[in-house]
Amino acid sequence: MIGLRPIEVADAAAHLAALDRESVRRTAGPGPPKTMAEFERCAAEWATDGPRKTFTVVDVSSYALAGTLDVTLEPEFLAKRQADISYGIHPPWRGSGVPGRTIVLACRYLARNDSADEAVLRIDTDHKSDIALAHQLGFHYHRSSTESEGFLDWFIQAL
Results as ranks from 00 to 15, higher is better:
L152F: 03
Y63I: 04
A47I: 05
L73Y: 06
A10Q: 06
G3N: 01
P30D: 14
R25A: 13
A116N: 08
A116E: 01
H90A: 11
A44P: 02
F151C: 12
W46S: 02
Y109C: 05
R5I: 07
H140A: 14
D126E: 10
T72M: 11
F39D: 13
W93K: 00
I2D: 00
Q157M: 13
S23I: 12
Q136C: 10
Y87D: 01
C42L: 03
T125M: 04
G97V: 12
V24L: 15
P92E: 11
T27H: 09
A44H: 13
R143S: 09
T125Q: 07
T35K: 10
D114F: 08
V98K: 10
T48V: 15
S148D: 14
T27R: 08
W46F: 06
E45H: 11
F155H: 14
R41I: 15
M36A: 15
T102E: 01
G67N: 05
V9L: 10
D117W: 03
G97C: 09
N113K: 12
S62R: 03
L137S: 01
G3A: 11
A10S: 11
S23E: 13
V58Q: 08
R25N: 05
V58S: 03
F77S: 04
H135M: 05
T102A: 11
Q157W: 05
G95F: 03
I7Q: 02
T102S: 06
R25V: 15
P75A: 09
I156C: 12
Y109I: 00
L152Q: 04
L4T: 00
A111L: 06
T125H: 01
F155K: 02
A106M: 07
E149T: 13
I131C: 04
G95C: 09
L16I: 15
L78N: 07
E45G: 09
V104D: 08
D20L: 12
A12I: 07
G50I: 03
A83E: 05
Y87A: 08
A111Y: 07
R52Y: 03
A66S: 12
R26D: 13
E38W: 00
A28Y: 11
A18I: 13
R21A: 15
C42R: 12
V9C: 04
A134T: 01
T56A: 15
A37R: 15
L19M: 14
E22S: 11
R52H: 07
A79P: 04
A10C: 02
D59F: 03
A158R: 14
E76M: 12
D126S: 14
E118M: 06
T125L: 13
A158L: 07
L105H: 02
S115W: 12
S62C: 02
T72L: 02
G97D: 03
R81Q: 12
S86K: 05
L133P: 00
A12K: 02
S96H: 11
V9Q: 03
K34N: 08
T68G: 14
E8V: 09
R25C: 12
A10E: 06
Y87L: 14
G31M: 08
I85F: 01
Q82I: 10
V57D: 00
W46H: 01
D117Q: 05
I2H: 00
G97I: 09
V24C: 13
G3R: 07
F151Y: 05
A47H: 06
